[in-house]
């Protein structure tokens, strides 16, 4: 399978706080950033997710495992988007989770509406930045200290609003290296 045949799957889980038109727009934006064709395929529904009865939150790590397992063979990466609140056991919550250098990542919009309800445009901007951020992790990128880089870890939506939707020069080089490495790898070894 050539790199041209690879797709990047965007998988909304259940109903989102944004319309389908935005998800399509997000697909185009993501294609412009990573260079892969994007496809919108709902692979899971909210009812498929397991909610912790005490915490009333969803554990993100098993969701990623499931997504990686059920994603189509042509999918090089899968980005799930959900409006439910996510957690990993030791932390109170996570904004998203990704398999570092792996296939799947997930983004929750639950905490993007903290404080005053943001304008739709602001909410979309936050989703776009954090979608690139989580996908960046699947391309083996770590958090970046540059506060304007999209890979910067944000403590709250204020910082998300302040950072750009671009990779800094350093992260951009690392991303290119990883994409070149993936292009050389035999298809069977790709996650």
């Amino acid at each position: 399978m050539s790199s041209e045949e690879h797709i990047l799957v965007i998988s909304p889980i259940g109903r989102l706080d944004v319309d389908r038109g935005f998800v399509e727009h997000l697909g185009k934006e993501i294609r412009a950033v990573f260079g892969y064709q994007t496809d919108i395929r709902p692979l899971l529904d909210e009812k498929d997710l397991w909610a912790d009865p005490v915490r009333k939150q969803y554990h993100s790590t098993p969701i990623l495992d499931t997504l990686a397992m059920i994603s189509p063979p042509e999918a090089i990466k899968v980005l799930a988007i959900t409006k439910v609140d996510l957690f990993i056991p030791i932390l109170t919550h996570v904004y998203g989770e990704a398999q570092l250098g792996g296939k799947a990542c997930i983004l929750s919009t639950y905490r993007f509406s903290e404080g005053l309800a943001p304008a739709a445009e602001i909410l979309r901007d936050r989703i776009f930045k954090e979608a690139i951020h989580e996908l960046g992790h699947t391309f083996n990128l770590r958090h970046c200290r540059d506060a304007s880089c999209v890979m910067h870890y944000c403590r709250g939506v204020g910082e998300v609003d302040r950072k750009s939707n671009q990779f800094c020069r350093y992260c951009a080089v690392l991303l290119q290296d990883e994409m070149k490495r993936l292009a050389k790898e035999p298809v069977s070894s790709k996650q």
């Binding site: 990993i88 030791i90 570092l100 958090h143 870890y153």
Partner: peptide, 12 residues
Amino acid sequence: RESLGGWLERDG
């Protein structure tokens, strides 16, 4: 171990 480790790795 896995979830905390993963989170820390993503943080570099």
